[in-house]
Amino acid sequence: MADTEKKAMVIFAHPVPESFSSALHTRVVETLKSQQWQVDDCDLNAENFPAVMTCEERRSYHDETININPVKSYVERLQAADAIVFVYPVWNFGYPAILKGFFDRVFLPGVSFKLVDGQVRPALTNVKKYATVTTYGGTRLRAFMAGDPPRKLMTRPIRYVMNGAPMQYLALYDMNRASDQKRAAFLAHVTRHMERF
């Protein structure tokens, strides 16, 4: 595959355009483009992604002939990606609701996983690498004491459906007390990783 054909999907979840998460999102997109990635910039809030699964969606969840219909365009974008970068803040030791809704509605049977004889098998084998860029309001110790569910979700089940693809987890802890210098250092850290992505 030629470098010019590399396709990265950036999935961003934060409603506030002047937020630090938004600055991280912009930096990720710009840096990937500078490295000749073709970027599909999926800003869930800007696209008004409907996060709530409907009754009918849940009823047809396991029917792979129709389950993608309500979110077909997002499934196609996901399946076209060679790499994915998630950019979002950790809120209440979890994803923002809109990102959780994206996983619920788009990471469907036949899309992100297949059920084979009752066993879950990875289906997002088109994704060769992925990264998470995130911030935590609390300290690393506080996250550790809570089991750090966001890190575990991204490094275990999400990685599994991508067939164990290489991944990076870039996190700024203690965001609530982060100085301008600390935020600038994290932006630089993210830039370096995206340049080598």
Rank of each mutant, 00 (worst) to 15 (best):
A2D: 14
T4Q: 12
T4K: 13
K7C: 13
A8Y: 09
A8N: 10
M9Y: 07
M9P: 04
V10Y: 06
F12T: 07
A13Q: 01
H14E: 03
P15K: 01
P15L: 02
P15H: 04
V16Y: 07
P17C: 00
F20N: 03
H25C: 00
R27W: 00
V29K: 11
E30Y: 11
T31F: 11
L32S: 08
Q36Y: 08
D40L: 11
C42N: 14
N48Q: 15
N48P: 00
F49K: 09
C55L: 14
E57Q: 13
R58A: 14
S60G: 02
Y61P: 06
E64L: 06
E64P: 00
T65G: 01
I66V: 15
I66S: 10
N67F: 09
N67I: 07
N69H: 13
P70E: 09
P70S: 10
V71N: 09
V71W: 05
S73N: 12
Y74R: 11
V75T: 06
R77Q: 14
I84D: 04
I84N: 03
V85M: 09
V85A: 06
F86P: 03
F86L: 15
F86I: 04
F86V: 03
Y88R: 02
W91H: 12
F93Q: 01
Y95W: 13
Y95S: 00
A97V: 01
I98R: 01
L99K: 02
K100I: 02
F107P: 01
L108Q: 05
L108D: 07
G110L: 07
G110K: 09
V111F: 07
F113P: 04
F113L: 04
F113E: 04
K114Q: 14
L115Y: 13
V116S: 11
D117R: 13
D117W: 06
G118V: 08
P122K: 07
A123G: 08
A123F: 05
L124F: 07
T125R: 12
T125M: 08
V127C: 04
V127Y: 08
A131E: 07
T132I: 15
T132P: 02
V133G: 06
T134K: 03
T135H: 03
Y136W: 11
G137L: 06
G138N: 13
L141T: 13
F144L: 14
A146H: 06
A146F: 10
A146M: 13
P149Q: 02
P149S: 02
K152F: 05
L153N: 08
M154I: 03
M154A: 10
T155A: 10
R156Q: 14
I158D: 01
R159D: 08
R159T: 10
P166C: 10
P166G: 07
M167K: 12
M167I: 10
Q168F: 10
Y169L: 12
L170P: 02
A171L: 03
L172A: 08
M175V: 03
A178E: 11
Q181R: 14
K182Y: 03
A184G: 12
A184N: 14
A185L: 13
F186T: 02
A188W: 00
T191F: 01
T191L: 03
R192E: 15
M194A: 05
M194L: 12
F197R: 07
